[in-house]
Computed example of a mutant assay.
Amino acid sequence: MKKIVRKLHRYLGLIFSISILMSSGSGVIHVLMSRTQSAPPAAKPSGALLDTSAITVTPADAFPDAPPAAINIRNIAGKPHYQAFIPGQREFTYIDATNGRKNPDADATYAREIASTFLGTDEIEQTDFLTSFNSEYIGIFRILPVYRFDLADGKGTRVYVSTVTGSVTRHTDDEKQFEASVFTNFHKLGFIPNKDARDWLLTILTGAAFLISILGIVLFFLTRPRKNKKPATGTTRP
């Protein structure tokens, strides 16, 4: 029994030690990231103040045929706009609240204004529009869809913008993203694109590490030194 447990512990430990190394390494990276990565941007609307006195069209007049489920008032290009969530439509509907006209370009314009205000410059370029998560904008950021805007500052600074919240949902650069990518690859096996395969492999590796730990505990008790029994004392016959 001792030999079997010892061999299992030895060879399984050698095989699956890579997962333990990756987990411990990601723990060190996580500590470093907590000191080098900036806090997530505040989820609050950004931009110029809203001129409510310019609103001349009521919501009832703006949406006579398709009643919205929810309405936000956004300041876009210096004018108040109704941002409407209409059931059955994937995209927002924007109505200029000063004249009642539909503005099909308002969403992209609004996203650019949010990014420009956050970064403090108009020298930005839209490089992507995400409707699903990818290797950089991962599921922990939760909000979709988002626009990506890049700043040509030599650092690879970019922001992800949500017109739903009216705010920046992620702010990063090349250096910060390198740290985040290393952590994701070590801690979550992010280099495996298929989520099901990744989850199964993580489960197997974690389960194996648990099994190896149990075997080590069992082996400790099986191989612990035994106390020698003292010989019985007494007289013997010649």
Rank of each mutant, 00 (worst) to 15 (best):
P80W: 07
G88F: 10
Q83N: 03
P67L: 13
P64N: 04
N72I: 05
G78L: 03
T36R: 08
D65A: 04
A43K: 15
P40T: 05
T36G: 04
T93N: 00
Q89T: 00
A70E: 08
Q89D: 00
T93M: 02
P59T: 13
L49Y: 07
A66G: 04
V57Q: 07
T98Q: 07
G47T: 13
T52K: 14
D51Q: 12
K44M: 13
P59K: 07
Y82Q: 01
A39Q: 11
S38M: 11
A39C: 02
Y94F: 15
D61E: 12
A77Q: 09
I86E: 01
F92W: 13
E91L: 00
T56V: 13
G47K: 08
I71E: 07
P87K: 14
P68C: 09
A43E: 09
S46I: 13
Y94E: 01
A48H: 14
K79G: 02
P59M: 11
I86L: 02
P41N: 02
A60D: 11
K79P: 01
G47V: 08
S38L: 11
E91H: 00
F92E: 02
A97D: 06
A42L: 11
A77N: 15
D65L: 01
P80Q: 06
Q37N: 13
I76G: 06
P67V: 11
G47N: 08
P64T: 13
T98C: 12
